[in-house]
Design a protein around this nucleic acid. Structure first.
Lengths: 260, 260
DNA sequence: CCCCACCCATAACCTGCGTTATCTGTCCCA
DNA sequence: TGGGACAGATAACGCAGGTTATGGGTGGGG
């Protein structure tokens, strides 16, 4: 059994610290969280829709996706998860998970007992608040995806998704220049943007021809993020990355979901 | 100034009681919430994207929508709000609201000070938890909408949306038979499902021809909800309407977002 | 070292849906 | 009582994107 401190990634702590300064105790508590490290190949299911899991997990390396299927088998990816994310954080509060989660690249996951995280949140209300806030930001991202898929054409959709990925990766310190790389197959890109795999290929070619991206076999380079943002109709506000404190509840008014 | 108890609607309390029994004190506190009643015609903006409002509101009668616009003016509705909903509940915790909200039918709103609701939540953690859980259910609905818009054809999309509306209206006691009515224009229906107004009209005709709905001028009758559910690939699980308690935090571990 | 699975590119063809336009019906208010 | 704003129906036309199929490149496992 590992902990966050000796795992290969401290993305979660990086993400939290981008919003507010952790105390020594808070950081220690997170570092001490017992983690069972699991490595997966690409396209492996992790949890399935309808599950009521006692364990939850954090992405340490690689990428994962939440997805749902229509009854005739078409797949829609609802969210892409990067290192530092806890994809099923909502299951702390809702009994059943309402979508499936799978790896989309080789990845390392850190499984933990939901109970352990609850205990940390009990001791450190600010961490609880931060996790809670994360679920609200996730909902904001979902709204932007809805706009993207409902009202933008394929070319713009893909550009927008790339922008989001870039900005989020930057926020957890996974890139440091304006040119960076990541991997996602065209089939997954198609399922994330609600278009077909073939047309995804066409749109990528157009982006390449316009000099907005350079790509080769699941690697991607963005020479000018500003240009891509314009092409993707992208405005980062919806990611709520700003450091400023949020308004909200005081310590006394915290929710007791367990009491319901 | 009104309160919930002398306003024309107690949908909110109805909705909360469908999940767990309120104590006398909890119910009284909600009834005493000072509300400023405002009546609006259809298609009036209520809050705009980027606002940091000190007031929030509850839908008492009629319907509202959350929406966003692309830079070239296309509109996507992210959520439909029915009586009892608090559309911008998330603004209790996130500083800026990330979508606009407008009426889509003549409606009555009950505005309240965010501070007043915070105070109620401080006194009654179970209410706080219930509101919090609501934001998680909203996110689940968003995921289903994403699947709907990303991977279902126009006909199925509209059938699905109608099913959701029906089931939600039933849950707050706004319908009591299998045949009921509600009003939404085709233009709004189009913006909610990510298709054009003209094609919405075509799909409605097909639904009518197949006997799944009867509609006349913003009124809609569903003779057989089961049939419509099949046509709409609808499974109500994502609405999380079940009465059973949810797992979650204990009283001591509540989030203190204000402290961030 | 080779084979097979996977990923990607591209062509050919087709259709679901968007766009534009016109007409009708209805409600509201002057 | 009439006119203007709005909701809806439907037709004609075009295209973005879906579907199916083929072939080529690459990497990992036996």
């Amino acid at each position: 059994m590992n902990t966050l401190s000796n795992s290969s990634s401290t993305r979660l702590i990086h993400k939290l610290e981008s919003r507010f300064a952790l105390t020594v105790e808070e950081r220690q508590a997170l570092y001490a969280l017992p983690l069972q490290l699991i490595s997966l190949k690409a396209n492996q299911d992790i949890v399935s829709i309808g599950d009521c899991p006692l364990q939850s997990f954090m992405v340490l390396e690689g990428f994962a996706s939440s997805y749902k299927l229509t009854s005739d088998g078409h797949r829609q990816i609802m969210a892409l998860h990067i290192p530092g994310d806890i994809p099923d954080l909502q299951t702390l509060y809702l009994k059943r998970i309402d979508c499936s989660i799978a790896s989309i690249s080789p990845c390392t996951l850190g499984f933990f007992q939901v109970e352990d995280l609850r205990r940390i949140c009990e001791r450190f209300p600010r961490l609880s608040a931060a996790f809670w806030r994360d679920t609200l930001v996730d909902a904001s991202v979902l709204r932007e995806w809805l706009l993207n898929i409902g009202r933008r054409d394929a070319y713009t959709r893909i550009a927008h998704l790339f922008c989001e990925f870039m900005v989020r990766l930057k926020a957890v310190g996974l890139v440091d220049s304006d040119t960076f790389r990541f991997s996602i197959t065209q089939a997954n890109l198609a399922d994330a943007t609600g278009i077909s795999a073939v047309h995804t290929s066409r749109a990528l070619k157009a982006l390449r021809d316009n000099g907005l991206i350079q790509s080769a076999r699941m690697n991607l380079t963005v020479p000018d993020l500003e240009l891509l943002m314009e092409a993707g109709d992208f405005d980062a506000h919806y990611l709520h990355l700003e450091q400023s404190p949020v308004s909200g509840f005081t310590a006394a008014n915290q929710a007791n979901v367990a009491a319901l």
